[in-house]
Structure formats: C-alpha cells, structure tokens
Nucleic acid binder design. Structure first.
Lengths: 343, 343
DNA sequence: CTGAAAGCGCTTACAG
DNA sequence: CTGAAAGCGCTTACAG
C-alpha cells in the first residue's frame, strides 16, 4: 500500500489534524508545513500563507511527542525541588518560570524525596533537555551522574563537576549579622540555632557566625541547637535555651521559621525578645515583617536566583560548553527590632 | 538494507542505549523488551531476567517522546496556576504532587497570564493527558474549548460544562465569620474589603458577608472597598477607611494579605485593631499567626483540594466519563484576636 | 509467551 | 524554496 494511501486512511479515522492533513489541505508537502510552522527554514510567502490558513482552519497543534522524537529536543526543563513549604521555592519557581517562558521552555516540576516507581534522577535525561536542582539533600554522586548525561544547573549549592551553580552570598552576610549583635548591641553569649551538618547553606551561615565571634575574640556560648524548623521545634528550642545554665543573650537562627517560632515561644515564657535576648533569622519571609518585634534577618534574592538558573540552563542546553561556573548573588541584611534596634 | 542492519549501525553511533541495543544484548525482540519493561504483558521468567539484566547493564532508560508517540499517552498533567505569590498555590501544588506521584504522573507547571510565543491553553492537548486549572482569570470559553479536547479539572472555581471541580465552601463560612462580628462583638458598621467582581471566590465571600448582614437586619456601612492585595493596597485601604464619614467598626477582608496590610496601616495610625475596629481575613497565611493582634480568618483545605484534583483528573484520564461534578471541601473559621476576642 | 512489522507524527539531510 | 524519504524509538495488534 502506498504511503499516501496509508496516510489518508489514518487521517480519516484520527480525530485530530496532523501534519499530513494540513499538508493535504494546503496542497504542499509535510516538509513545507513543518518548515512554515517551526520557522526552521525560509518558505515562500504563498506557501507560508496556505499552510498557516490550513493549520488555522484545522486547529492544528503539532504533537509534542513526535516533535521531540524527531528533533531530539524536549523544549522542557525539569526543576527539582525539595518541597514547596515556605516562600523559598515559590519565589525560585516564579523567577525561573519568568525567564524560561521567554525561551519557550516548559517546566516539569519534580519534587525530590518522592521517588516514583523505580525512577531515579538520571531518568530525567529521557524526558527533558536540562535540569535545575534546587534541593539540598540530593546526593552529590547522583547529581554528578546526571550531569554527565545532560546539562545541570545547581541552585543554593555548589561544588559538583560540570554543573553551573547559582547561590546567594552567605558567609559574609552571616558575619555582618552576627557582628551587628556583638558590636552594636553588646551581645556576648551567642548561640547558633540550626544544624550546620544538615545542609550546605546552613553550614555557610554557621561559618559566618563563627567568623564574627572569632573576630571579636569570643566563643559560642553553646554548641548549635539542633531543632526541627517547625513551630514544635520552636517550642523545643525555647525549652533548650531556657534550660541553659548560662543563658545566651543572642540567638542566631538558621532560618526565619525557627526564629519566628522561637520568638513566639520566648514571648510566651515572658522573655522579651530584642531586650532580654536578641533573635535573628534568615530568608525574610512575609511573617518576619508582621511579628512583634519585627524579625532581623537576611534576604536572599531568590527570584533572581531562579531567573539566573533559567538563563544558565538555557545557555547550556543551547550548547555552550564552558566549565561549570559559580554565580553568587548578593544577600541583604534586614535590620528590624528583634536584634535590639529601636522600631 | 535490512532493518536489523540499519539498527545496528544506529546503535553503534548513538551514545545511549535504545530498546534495540537492549534487545540485542538480551537476545530477544524489542517487543519482549517493551513488554518486560512496561509490564504490559506477561513474559517468561527467563526473558524477564535477561531483559532486566541487559537494561541494567546498558543503563537503559526509555525515551519518553517515543513512548508517548507510540502509546498516545503522556503520563503528564498540566497544572495551570495564576502565580506563585502567597502560600495558596504552593499548598495546592504540594497536595497535587503528592497524589499525582502515586499514579506516576508528571507535573507540567504552567503559569497562566504568561502566554508563550503563540501558545494557547488548547495547545496543551498535544502535550499532556489532562489539565488542572487553578486560576481564576482564565476565560470560561477558553477552558470549555480545552475541556472538549482533554479532561479538565477546575480548582477554586466551578460551572464549566464537562469539567469536574474542587472548591472550598465559602458562603457559609463567610456568613459565620461575619455573624461572629455582629453577634459576638456587637459590630454594626461593617464594610467588605476586596473586589467581588474580580473573582469567583471573592464574590462568594461577599455573598456570605451580605447574608449575615441581612439576617441581622443590617446593611453594609459602605460599598466594598476595592484595593490591590498588596502592602501599598493596605496603605490605601487605611486611608479610605479613615476617610469615611461614618467610620466602620469592622472590616471583612477578601484575603489575609489585605487584612494584614490593613492591620499594619491602622496600627500605624493609632487605631487599635480588635478594639476600635475589627478586622478579618481569609486564607490563614503563616503571618496571620504572627501579627498582633492575631488575625481572625478562614482556612481553606488547600492541600486537600490539590490532592482531590489529582485524584479526579487521574480518574478522568483513565476513561471515567461521568459528567463533571462539584466537590466542595470544608472551610474552617479561625478565631484569633483581630475580631475582638481575647488572646 | 514471543517475534515481525506497522504505525505513532514529526524533523531534517539530500537532491533538485 | 520545495518534496520524497529516511529516521527518531517506542507500543501494540496480529499471527503463531
């Protein structure tokens, strides 16, 4: 059976328009239809017009799977995140999406730590053109393996061969924040709240904390207080803090969630935050502006980080083969009242 | 040239394993490989083992595009959202993703109002198996058109032919909230803050507000105050409220953002929220717990709504052809102090 | 239970 | 600028 006949039979049965039905209606070959619609090559004005008209009349939409199979491109990036808790990942996704849309890239949202039926990160290579990993817990070797297969951009972490990465400056800002407590507010018994061993970024904040202490000839009043970053964790942290023999006069928290919960917990126990004890956070979540006292914290340019990641990934997918670079965006220390500053 | 020869040549040049290389290594046909790997048909233990071994050794991952093209299924749903501002969409996505993962469905995140190069909603039919629309502004006819092509589930809105929808109860809760202000706190000059004409859900909240007023034989002290749901909008709302000849004694806000900003604005002008004037919100965002006074508001089961949407869409994609139904999940009124209740 | 082969609907050298 | 045709890498009747 000649091909054309096969095709007409198919077209007749199939509900939707295909490139064949468009070609037939326009009186051109499917190659011309493809060229007109994808803009991949120059086509005559007449052909262009006929194809456009036929496509419109048939409400033709190219089948994505066929397109990808033939072109070997997915026009899609995966963004791997840890969770959507809190404003961090939302902001990141917004920044990412805005830029990706400019490049007509679709966004496949992958929530890590939720392994699908025998699926691994590496499987994404048969699904998307590139991957952004914005999750802290993904094992290095798993990422490295993926990066050998397709372009990978890291957000919020760094140090994996062949990957570009986008991070916000941490150590210096954490030093600045801590120094503010020491120099400006005369705090001497400082304690870090959070687990430096758990995540890259927390480790960096802790480093900055220690640097400021060292510069001032101080030592931490206690080892880092490790609690879950939840309200219950805040309760627990409150207990821990109040149970310390030599009560700290400043708590530098790994993020706003802990700082906020701690603020509530201390307030409930009659401890005046900003006066009896200084508290700082990290991230500048919405609630940081609404608590009393307002939370002193550090603000990462999360949305810009997302946009930058999209930019970098797009470039890599486009074929740029430069070795992975690290892009550091500036963090801003936001002084409110929980450090002791006046409202 | 015989097919097998063509194939071996390809396999030789191609970097990645294909179903052909796996078949060759396992000593079976590609059909058997497909059957073993997809689990679509029973295969002998021997064949199964050989295929699994070969696939493992070659680190074979089926090409998604080829799979979709041949099977006519994408194993992917699109979730169309308006923005990622605030916790609403994040929660929704989390709930959605959790359930979708159980069904091994991928999630394509589409931010509406960001039309890609000549792309419309209807184009999604050539990209995914089904669509969840969780955006208020998408025109009804555009959605209806899409729903004629592929399964569509609505979240937060309803009333489109052939679509299932998931909403949270609004009118009754809004009535309850308003009645609380009237009956419990003796408020008489109530004003709604927000634009009922802008969105379905806000309209429903306004309906509940009016019902409570009518039940009490009252009228709104003023028409709805329409301001942007931002902090600037809160400033503006503050001005509007204070400028009213007969100052309201209660403000029922369309959402927490406005209520929060308004609380800050009023406080800044020396008005005691909860005493001089009652303020309520809607959504129960994180900051609602942290402001002083704590914000009285209503909490939607957003995560559950997302999960339910995933469930419904999966069922529809699976072929269930029942007429679109409406699923209403319960909303909870959360009493804090901004209504006048004691902390 | 298995294989040969057609078909899914595009893109893209290749030749003209 | 255009067309014929091969190829992308799978799934799935069909026959055995």
């Amino acid at each position: 059976m000649p091909r054309s006949q096969i095709r007409s039979r198919r077209t007749a049965t199939s509900g939707r328009a295909t490139i064949y039905s468009v070609a037939e209606r326009a009186g051109v070959s499917i190659a011309t239809v493809s060229r007109v619609l994808s803009g991949a090559a120059v086509t005559s004005p007449e052909a262009t017009e006929k194809v456009l008209k036929a496509a419109r009349e048939l409400a033709y939409v190219p089948q994505n799977s066929a397109k990808s199979l033939a072109s070997r491109r997915y026009q899609t990036h995966a963004v791997v995140i840890g969770s959507l808790e809190g404003p961090y990942y939302s902001e990141l996704l917004m920044g990412y999406e805005e830029v990706a849309a400019r490049y007509d890239q679709e966004l496949l949202l992958v929530v890590a730590d939720r392994p699908r039926r025998n699926r691994t990160l590496a499987d994404l290579r048969a699904r998307v053109d590139g991957v952004v990993i914005a999750q802290m817990d993904t094992p290095v070797d798993e990422i490295a393996a993926l990066a050998r297969l397709i372009p990978v951009v890291l957000v919020g972490r760094t140090g994996i061969d062949g990957c570009d990465s986008v991070v916000s400056e941490s150590v210096r800002s954490a030093t600045e924040l801590t120094r503010h407590l020491i120099d400006r507010h005369g705090r001497r018994r400082l304690v870090f709240v959070g687990d430096p061993a758990q995540a890259f970024d927390v480790a960096a904040r802790h480093d900055g904390f220690r640097t400021a202490l060292a510069d001032a000839g101080l030592e931490a009043a206690h080892e880092p207080l490790v609690v879950p970053y939840t309200e219950r964790g805040g309760e627990r942290a409150t207990d821990l803090v109040l149970a310390l023999a030599d009560r700290p006069d400043a708590l530098v928290c790994a993020n706003d969630e802990v700082a906020l919960a701690l603020t509530l917990g201390l307030r409930g126990r009659g401890v005046r935050v900003g006066i009896d004890i200084a508290v700082t956070g990290w991230d500048d979540v919405t609630a940081a502006r609404y608590v009393s006292p307002g939370l002193t914290t550090a603000s990462q340019p999360v949305r810009e980080m997302g946009g930058r990641a999209a930019e970098l990934l797009h470039r890599r997918v486009g074929g740029q083969q430069d070795p992975g670079g690290q892009h550091v965006l500036p963090t801003e220390v936001v002084i409110r009242q929980s450090c002791g500053c006046a409202g």
